[in-house]
């Protein structure tokens, strides 16, 4: 294999890994704090993409320059989180805390079904496109190939998200409180921590990240029904590979998936999607708790 091949595989793999990491980060954060595996996470990604499509339409409407669409997408993701996180967490999931974890899994499955149709009711079935932002960063030439600057910008966005969440958790007081709640919610409550608020906060950030990934991938794709199903499977594979509840795990998982997929396209195009399942299977057999999870086999 030539150096140029390796370079392209790396660039393509990392671009692919970047949006996937943002989705998986939200999934892993919600799991880490609330112990909920959110099957509706892919739907939140889809809602984020739809919201971005709607919000960016406002930019030319108000006569603002196209660069504002980047801001519009951010606001769209925030809006989704502000609306959906309280409804889902306070309105629904809260009812099941302390009950069987699997019951909550089933509730999120129901939310997935509901959101599939709700997005359809709100936005219809016709596709939406977000054309403008993708032209903002021009093209970049890497190893004789042209890449769209916007796609490379996603790598920066992913890095910012990962860093922000990590710093937020480890370097701020609120973050330390969240860690305390992860460690033991009951004792935290006794120490005066308002655990409910921490849950809402974590869920809010998780939803925001899913919507953010959806919003910033919207310019690359055709936003239409059915985009959620594959996202949940991919982000699920990422957290399984990296280990549930671990931020570096999500990063490594996303990189493994992204690069494995890119390498497969070049070397064994027949195995493109299968390679992801294969990596997941290998990790499951040899390190079922994920590459980055402390062994925590059984709680007694």
């Amino acid at each position: 294999m030539e150096f140029a091949d390796i370079l392209t595989i790396l660039v393509d793999g990392v671009v692919y890994a970047s949006w996937l990491f943002i989705v998986a980060l939200g999934l892993t954060l919600i799991f880490g704090v609330l112990q909920i595996l959110n099957l509706a996470h892919g739907s939140l990604y889809a809602v984020g993409a739809y919201a971005a499509a709607s919000f960016t339409m406002l930019v030319p409407y108000f006569g603002l320059p196209p660069a504002f669409s980047l801001l519009a997408m951010l606001i769209a993701a925030l809006a989704v989180a502000l609306v959906l996180a309280p409804i889902l967490e306070r309105g629904l999931l809260r009812l099941f805390y302390g009950r069987d974890e699997v019951l909550i899994l089933l509730v999120t499955y129901a939310v997935f079904l509901v959101l599939e149709d709700v997005t359809k009711l709100v936005w219809g079935v016709q596709p939406y496109y977000v054309f403008e932002p993708r032209n903002l960063f021009g093209n970049v030439e890497i190893g004789q190939l042209f890449y769209v600057g916007y796609d490379l910008m996603l790598i920066v966005l992913a890095a910012i998200c990962g860093l922000a969440v990590w710093l937020g958790l480890n370097k701020t007081t609120t973050g330390k409180v969240v860690l305390a709640v992860i460690h033991n919610p009951d004792v935290s409550a006794c120490m005066g921590v308002r655990v409910n608020w921490i849950y809402l906060l974590a869920f809010f950030v998780g939803v925001f990240l899913a919507a953010l990934a959806g919003a910033y991938t919207a310019p690359l794709i055709s936003v239409q029904p059915g985009i959620s199903v594959n996202v949940i499977i991919l982000s699920f594979a990422v957290v399984i590979i990296g280990g549930l509840g671990s931020i570096p795990g999500a990063a490594i998982g996303a990189l493994v998936v992204g690069i494995a997929r890119a390498a497969a396209v070049y070397e064994f195009p027949e195995a493109e999607i299968f390679i992801i399942y294969l990596v997941m299977a290998i990790v499951l057999v040899f390190r079922p708790e994920g590459l980055f999870q402390r062994t925590q086999a059984r709680k007694i």
Binding site: G13, D151, T217, I221, V229, N230, V265, E272
Partner: peptide, 11 residues
């Protein structure tokens, strides 16, 4: 042969 519904074709 990208997966059905892959959505991203950069590679």
């Amino acid at each position: 042969f990208p997966a059905f519904g892959a959505g991203q074709y950069g590679t």
